[in-house]
């Protein structure tokens, strides 16, 4: 038989649970007020009036037609979407390959570990931030304006967008790399490019491939949309169907994009899991 001794009574009394101050209620009220303000008519969005319109008046006949079209995709038109879909896929592939290759170079320049000088580091880092601050659709708009509509504009937009994303992720991986091997490369008299290639690249390769696959996922998604601004791919068809008020076709393309993106992600996730092990 074992007896459990009561723990020795501590000399100081146990403190009561501190009562929450009024801060959280004030904060909650402020957030609620900001939300209402942002959704109200005064900001120009006018969500609140629109909501009441929908609930009080019900859907208009035209809206009802659109909703019904959307729930009845024009599957019979699916074969016609094959070509543009292939274009979307090749845009994503080309954009990923070129973008990720260039991202590799930019990434080495935007980590202090491999940049070889503060000036170069700051320059490349700035360039990277610039590339990343412009959304892919905006890049596409710029290229469409500069070199005309078509898949080339889309691919270029994806390349720039990818450099921004992959270089950012990869340069942060390089920052965290084990520097012991770098010390060994330095001690052997390696040059800047050599030490990066030999002592850093093998360490970040699995992550790099994983980031590139992620970039491909983003590209598949993005290239479906880029067509709306005229940069080639399935988006062109999507825009056309929308302009013709063929919401059954819009719905078909949306469903196809969904399946396509979903499958790409499945494959990409499976591959990435194998890589980073």
């Amino acid at each position: 038989m074992t007896t459990v001794e009561a723990p020795p009574r501590s000399r100081t009394a146990r403190p009561p649970k501190p009562r929450p101050g009024p801060t959280r209620y004030v904060a909650a009220a402020v957030i609620a007020a900001i939300t209402y303000w942002a959704a109200s008519e005064t900001t120009g969005i006018g969500l609140v009036p629109q909501l009441s319109e929908v609930f009080v008046d019900g859907l208009s006949e035209r809206t009802g037609q659109i909703v019904s079209d959307i729930f009845n995709p024009a599957f019979e038109d699916a074969p016609a979407t094959g070509g543009p879909f292939l274009e979307t896929l090749s845009m994503a592939v080309l954009g990923t390959l070129m973008g990720c290759f260039l991202a590799l170079l930019v990434a080495f320049g935007s980590s202090l570990v491999t940049a070889g000088g503060l000036k170069r580091y700051r320059f490349t880092k700035g360039l990277m931030s610039l590339l990343r601050s412009v959304p892919d659709v905006l890049w596409a708009l710029l290229f469409v304006a500069a070199i005309g509509t078509g898949a080339l504009s889309g691919v270029l937009a994806l390349v720039l967008f990818n450099i921004g994303v992959v270089a950012k992720l990869l340069s942060e991986t390089i920052d965290a790399v084990d520097t012991k091997a770098l010390e060994a490369a330095d001690a052997a008299g390696a040059g800047l490019v050599q030490r990066a290639r030999v002592a850093v690249f093998p360490q970040v390769l699995p992550n790099y491939l994983s980031f590139s696959l992620y970039a491909f996922e983003l590209n598949v998604r993005a290239s479906a949309i880029l067509g709306i601004v005229g940069a080639g791919g399935i988006g062109v068809l999507l825009n056309l169907a929308r302009n013709q008020f063929r919401y059954d076709r819009v719905s078909l393309i949306v469903v196809e994009i969904f399946v396509f993106v979903f499958l790409t992600e499945l494959v990409s996730i499976a591959l990435r899991r194998r890589l980073v092990r």
Binding site: K180, A181, E183, A184, A188
Partner: peptide, 14 residues
């Protein structure tokens, strides 16, 4: 000048 390290300092992934 060759150098040998306490922690070996090899590139593990190659």
């Amino acid at each position: 000048v060759g150098m040998i390290f306490q922690g070996f300092n090899l590139v593990n992934r190659t």
